[in-house]
Amino acid sequence: MLTRRNLAVLAAAGFGAAGTGPASGQASTYPAGPVRVVIPFAPGAATDILSRLMAQQFAEAFGSPFVAENRTGANGAIAADLVARGPKDGSLILMGTFSTHATNPHIYPRFPYDPIADFAPVTLVATVPQLLAVHPALGVSSVAELREAALARPGRIVAATGGLGSSQHLSAVLFNRSAGVELEIIHYTRGFATVVPDLLENRVNLTFGDPLALLPMVREGRLRALATTGEDRSPLWPDVPTMAELGLPGATSLTWYGLFVAAGTDPAIVERLGAVAGQAIRKPDVARRIREFGAIPSGNTPAEFAAFQRAEFTRWGEVIRAAGIRVE
């Protein structure tokens, strides 16, 4: 979680220092040296896997080193602020996420960077829907049945999340609002992995979780998949309907991963990075690797990604404020 102590670490580490300005003619010689792809979360997570995949693609396309580097801490803010305040020449690329660039700035006070003004979006790499999974003992087999049960027992059906402001939490908030129900939402402060044992024992009734993480338990019949929260059906769950298909378009939500450089970087560099990234993401082997963990490849243009990020930032700000979600 991002705390006052973690924010103090940012200042102590010097990540708030001003970056250097862009030099003229950089685009024609880019990259002038090694490029660091900064990963805001720990090795092994989806952010890490996607970042390393993109670093490899950039290195092959440019014929120059692109080195993936984990800079964890402060719920992604340390890595994001490092890039925001770093050189404005494309030598630092951030794999930003739904949390670093759409939700956390609304949840935590005195945030160290502006997710819109301090960054130049490059491309949306991939989106990931959440999976609504319930314990079979709850006795519901569809979203309609879950809604009926929740209306009959307000506040007595429990949705578990991996923490306040997490993607699971926000998906549950949207479901409550869209379905007109009152699921009780409880948070496991040590992350989503700690939700699973209680869910399997039916100590909590349901979750909105990572489709890949929940896949084995659904296949074994230990959990039941009711819907996904994406705009399109998940490649992992082609037979599971979306919330929109079930008449709840307001419950649509995505986690996402996208590349950013510091604001002020030569637009020609941004466009070149975006074009190379988009071409890489559309390669069949790269797209297949992205789909293997439940993500949907994108590879849109910098302008399209900028519009997407602004819409996400605005939308989640409204949801978070309406729900009163805030960490002091």
Rank of each mutant, 00 (worst) to 15 (best):
V9H: 15
N75H: 15
S64Y: 02
R310G: 08
G324C: 05
G63R: 04
V83I: 06
V35T: 03
H187D: 15
D48M: 04
A227H: 09
G324R: 03
G162Y: 11
D114K: 10
A307P: 08
V196Q: 12
G163D: 09
A117T: 15
L138E: 09
T100M: 05
L7S: 09
G19N: 11
D114A: 12
I49D: 14
P302V: 09
L151Y: 02
G163M: 08
L92I: 05
I320P: 09
A120V: 02
P112V: 01
L200W: 06
I157C: 08
A179D: 06
P65N: 11
R147T: 15
A77P: 14
A8C: 09
S99E: 14
A46R: 11
F119C: 03
Y188G: 02
P31H: 06
I39W: 08
P31E: 01
Q130N: 03
S28K: 06
Y257Q: 08
L164N: 08
R71K: 05
Y257S: 07
A159P: 07
G33I: 01
L50I: 12
G180I: 00
L174V: 02
H187K: 09
L94N: 00
N300Y: 11
E231I: 11
R147F: 06
R288E: 08
A144W: 03
G258V: 01
L131K: 00
A23N: 02
F62M: 00
A263M: 08
L7W: 10
A117G: 13
V125M: 08
E220Y: 12
A263K: 09
T255L: 04
T72G: 03
G73M: 13
R153S: 13
L94M: 02
R321I: 06
F58Q: 01
R85I: 06
N205A: 15
E292Q: 12
P249S: 11
E292H: 12
L146T: 15
P43I: 02
R36W: 10
E182R: 15
V38D: 00
S141C: 10
